[in-house]
Simulated assay, not measured.
Amino acid sequence: MGKQLQLNVYKANKGGRRPGSGRKRVHSKGVAHRVRERVMRRTPLHINFKYRTLIRNKFCLRLLKRAILNARAHGLRVMHFSLQSNHVHLIIEAANNQVLTKGMRSLTVTFAKGLNKGRVQIERYHLHVLRGLRETKNAIQYVLFNQHKHEKGTYTRVDEYSSLLSLKENRKVIQHYAQRVKITIEIKRAEFWELEVGRSYLSRRGLELLT
């Protein structure tokens, strides 16, 4: 019986798998499709993702809250959020990578479908694992007071598009932050948002983690 011939698909002129083939990236470098870093319940996560359309409005705020509730049904603990002009910041907890994947898929799909504008999410969500108290505290303050960063020092009111006003002792957190950056922040009424409670790693540490 003769030797079986093998087809080399890498050197074919047309079709097949070959170096340089496939759709080229047409937008920013974004987040590469690599295996996500291992996550655990005791390592909070900072996540952000971008869109091609303006999302800082009341409709998108309600849509984001619905998406968060869907993600929580998959076990994802969304602790804090901030809705900016074209991107979303989240502080979350996940027991493992499977919970993270299912929860974030539910959240992003719900939000994108609710916008009803086609493929509006620019890239994969960016994930940063928070290690240690200082890094976690900085990330939470960055998310809760993110509007101050974008308004370049003119920020004088609590951002109603974040979860800040849902904190039980939000006035103390706000005053502490305002003294640190030397600005005055007026506290206005905003729609209440129910934060994660119970056996959460962050919620057990309370206010001292935020200030």
Rank of each mutant, 00 (worst) to 15 (best):
V120E: 03
N116G: 15
V109E: 00
N96P: 15
E123P: 00
R124D: 00
Y125L: 07
N116R: 15
V109G: 05
I92D: 00
M104P: 00
V120C: 12
A112W: 01
F111H: 03
S106M: 11
Q98S: 15
S106V: 06
V99S: 09
K117S: 10
R105V: 04
A112P: 00
I92T: 02
F111L: 08
K113R: 15
A112L: 04
R105S: 06
F111R: 05
A94D: 02
G118H: 09
F111V: 02
G114Q: 04
Q98A: 15
G114S: 11
A112I: 05
R105Q: 13
L115A: 12
A94Q: 03
I92M: 11
K117P: 03
T101H: 05
I92F: 06
Q98C: 13
R119V: 08
M104Q: 00
T110K: 15
T101D: 03
V120G: 10
K113Y: 05
A112Y: 00
M104L: 09
Y125S: 08
K117Q: 11
K102L: 12
R119F: 13
A112Q: 02
L115R: 13
V120W: 07
L115Q: 11
G114Y: 01
R119M: 10
T110G: 05
T110E: 08
I91E: 00
I91A: 07
K117W: 06
I92H: 02
T110P: 09
V109H: 13
I91T: 01
G114I: 05
E123W: 02
R124Y: 05
K117M: 14
A94W: 05
Q121M: 13
S106I: 01
R105N: 09
S106D: 03
K102R: 15
M104R: 02
A94K: 09
L107A: 10
K113T: 10
T108C: 14
F111M: 07
K117Y: 11
S106K: 09
L115F: 13
E93M: 10
G118Q: 10
T108R: 03
A94G: 08
R119W: 08
Y125H: 10
K102Y: 13
G118D: 01
K102M: 10
N96F: 14
V109D: 01
T108N: 12
R124H: 09
A94I: 10
G118S: 11
R105F: 08
T101V: 07
Q98P: 02
Y125F: 13
L107H: 07
V99T: 12
I122P: 01
A95K: 08
G103D: 04
N116T: 14
S106G: 08
I91L: 09
E123Q: 05
E123K: 07
T110D: 03
